[in-house]
Design a protein around this nucleic acid. Sequence first.
RNA 1: CGAGGUGUGGCUAAGUUUGGUAUAGCGCUGCGUUCGGGACGCAGAGGUCGCAGGUUCAAAUCCUGUCACCUCGACCA
Length: 494
Amino acid sequence: MAEEKKLVESITSMEEDFAQWYTDVVRKAELVDYSNVKGCMVIKPAGYAIWENIQKELDRRFKETGVENVYMPMLIPESLLQKEKDHVEGFAPEVAWVTHGGLEPLQERMCIRPTSETLFCDFYANDIQSYRDLPRLYNQWCSVMRWEKTTRPFLRSREFLWQEGHTAHATEEEAEARTEQMLHLYADFCEEVLAMPVIRGRKTDKEKFAGANATYTIEALMHDGKALQSGTSHNFGDGFAKAFEIQYTDKDNKLQYVHQTSWGMTTRLIGAIIMVHGDDSGLVLPPRIAPVQVMVIPIQQKKEGVLEKAYELRDRLKAFRSGTAEAGAMAMAGSGFRVKVDDTDKSPGWKFSEQEMRGIPVRVEIGPKDIANGQCVIVRRDTREKLVVSLEELEEKLVEVLETMQSEMLERARKHQQAHTYTAATYKEFQDIAEHKPGFIKAMWCGDAACEEKIKEDTTCTSRCMPFAQEEIAETCICCGKKAKTMVVWGKAY
RNA sequence: CGAGGUGUGGCUAAGUUUGGUAUAGCGCUGCGUUCGGGACGCAGAGGUCGCAGGUUCAAAUCCUGUCACCUCGACCA
């Protein structure tokens, strides 16, 4: 996609300055505005609609596995946050505190949730009595606050929207199964809906969540070769249960601690979509997640009958019901195309650029000449491929184009990831790649945190994950030369 | 939080060195002509120069402080 010519001057090219490109796209696609509070963004309709589609589809998938939604308070008393030692140490540096109620200082200060493990645990301690109460499979959609030092829209904001699932199980095995199940659910969602390939794996102890026994992660590669952690799933074992005394009575009338998990995805995914699929003309949205999939652009719209025809096409596409499952999945709710008409009095060229900056997957051009010929022109956002189609077969062609676009976007992203995934057998090789070739680096590791630390100091690469799909690249650790335990994927991360 | 940079109508900037009536382009509003890759004409609206102090007859311009944003590091979804 790199060789397409740049048609929009107001977007910095990726090659020139990737960070600036990202900021430009976020702005030109009207996804967010900055607010008066650093790190807290105004998510505008175009951005929020993407989040709503992410929510809709994830929520559906969660519920298919038995998850129920709940809502917890936004404030956590300090004493509650303190209960699990590792957890509080992990989050203390970045919580925001509420110290006053009106004019009165509070007896105990409360933090604005940076995550809700402690609230769920406190609740579960009373809520769970018997093995019959298990498992508890709860999720909440909310915003959380972490006082980050540097912020960027979607990628790192102080307040962000997410979902956090919190489950409690009778056995360790069940908790582990749920942890992995949710990670795969996330990964499948990214690949099937966001057309974003991810690497599934486990975090090293250094990188795992504060208070977790094990953290699983999906790691995606952005267009500039940097890694983005896109979703995590944690197995807590019975650590939190012990700290919060969450016990149930088993079948033999014995008290047992529950085993817990938590898992989350955030508005950061929108940043990932931008950086995986975007190009120099702006955003490119995968059809399945795009709030508007088709923009109808009338040409010479003041001419008799043109606008009318455009509205007619819109209504037809909205009402379309396909017999095929693929088309149903494309529309996500099986309810026709998500389509709009750009009937502003801007020139056609302007509208084309708008549609491209906003990442709308397909546009339909319809003008007097087309109407006379009973046809229209459809143009794909990602390839700019133009197709003249007769009006009778518009629906059919659109389904085809959207499906093709969805799968080709995934394929393209996959190729990019593969092309930027390197293998290092020696430390020299590793350092060379780290310095000159942005991307993932596969290399063996002995399991010692000291090596992980040294690699980070030497190269600024961090361990992204220990992939489920292991390969034996060498017998010895890339860093210390001792016997290797696992293959790790390394990279520079956002 | 450390280093560097930038703040002037909605956006992008000129003006700051050498204090002296706030400028331009784009966008916006109205009317008309246009319309297949960011059209054009005419007429209009809109800023007190990030914010707060200070120096001065006079501050966008000089001084002090402060805030925000961007880039690069350290910490994180």
